[in-house]
Design a binder for these strands. Structure first.
Lengths: 236, 236
DNA sequence: AATCATCTGCTACTTTAGTAGTGGTTTTGT
DNA sequence: ACAAAACCACTACTAAAGTAGCAGATGATT
């Protein structure tokens, strides 16, 4: 992708905003973006990760769900929802082993692609980028660890509350990333089912913590929500 | 630690066997071990990770449980059981942020310690070590991802069977690492409670998949166990 | 404007997991 | 050798989560 491209600026900005690339020098980023290709995937598209083994992708806009399925029950577990600045599949980059997961676009997705070979070249030339890679992977790994702790140590209502708090914007108190998702997708994020999520949404509503419109949750009383998340709210 | 130390050879061998250091040149390993100090922690000792922020540790012998607690219920979740060649705390090395978890020694533990500052120096001098670090972290991250998928997608019996299979030695069919653990600790590994684990152990016994002595499980019929783990065994 | 597909809220029900407690065995420590 | 502690097997019970299904609301499509 060259500077003449009408999307160049937006793509550059996405790279500069990502944990993994933001510490690179401006010149190095421009060098990187030159080797990348812009691709669009439409919303609702399904992919298998191992078919994209030979390249690395950076999200410029839109959301991508990374998930796993239990083939005998059809149940799904969403591992991550990746957004602007996220890189995939980082697992394959780390140990070069097959990572068999499913991807599904939640919106129209705009990504920058680069071949793994070229990534490795760039890394070799700029070993300092390892530092940012570790930082990024640390971030992802903490999310995984937090999730498994959450599921093991807390019930579904607590987990739902944690999810809402985790995705709440600190200032506007609006939900980011997960707003606009149906109950079903929320369930996949916390390891339960649609009916259970809906049951708890009704409870949170009754407690006055949230209000709900179709595919939209507003946080009405943050203190209540926090109390529920910390298992200190008794009147539920 | 110097070559004169009576434990030198064993420590060297532990480093050479670890994913993270095994690709280093022999000279570099010797350089590394010189800056390390050998420490012993007795079995059953409890530690808080953030008190060891400034150093990195490599296990020479023994097992260390890394876990998290729900303060309001007292329930525990074992994140990893670290053994020979494992490095901790790798999370802090990655992003330099506090990682608040608990540690408990399951055996007498023998570790090599080195200050983070010196680690960073060594890494800077040998950027190729990043490659091994990524490989090691990838390995740990896959375990986390697998665990959270497991918990979300499968019931407790299936998870117990997965645990047994995962820790089974391919040749001897003996359990490694987790043998010698009480039901309680097994429960913490798969996100459930002692009573449930025991119930399922009785089921696996009845199905002929395993036999049990005190703190010791033997796999009697691997095919049965695999069938149960794959949710294809119906007569349970 | 009518149709279709998706999503929510709800009820009734089943299954699974978790809690509590107890007697008895094995191991550990003194 | 004995007492104490840890652990296992088991029962009975409770609570939580999951399943199934449906009516009505909503939004998208044609």
């Amino acid at each position: 992708m060259t500077p003449e491209n009408p999307h160049y600026f937006r793509c550059l900005e996405a790279l500069k905003g990502s944990i993994i690339f933001k510490d690179l020098d401006s010149i190095d980023i421009q060098h990187l973006i030159k080797k990348m290709t812009r691709i669009k995937w439409t919303a609702g598209v399904f992919k298998r990760s191992f078919e994209f083994n030979s390249s690395l992708h950076v999200i410029v806009s839109g959301r991508l769900k990374m998930y796993q399925i239990n083939p005998s029950t059809g149940r799904e577990h969403t591992i991550y929802i990746l957004t602007k600045g996220d890189v995939f599949d980082v697992m394959h980059l780390m140990d070069n082993k097959t990572h068999d997961v499913y991807w599904e676009t939640l919106d129209d997705l705009e990504i920058l692609t680069i071949s793994i070979i070229e990534v490795n070249q760039i890394i070799e030339e700029n070993p300092k980028i390892y530092h940012s890679i570790l930082k990024y992977i640390g971030h992802m790994m903490r999310m995984l660890e937090e999730e498994s702790n959450d599921i093991c140590l807390h019930n579904t209502l607590t987990r739902l509350s944690h999810l809402l708090l985790k995705h709440m914007d600190g200032e506007s108190h609006q939900l980011k990333t997960i707003n606009n998702l149906p109950n079903n997708e929320i369930a996949n994020l916390i390891g339960t089912t649609r009916a259970v999520v809906n049951r708890h949404i009704q409870e949170l509503k009754k407690a006055g913590a949230i209000s709900v419109k179709r595919k939209h949750i507003d946080i009405e009383n943050l203190d209540t929500l926090i109390a529920i998340a910390e298992e200190k709210y008794t009147n539920i």
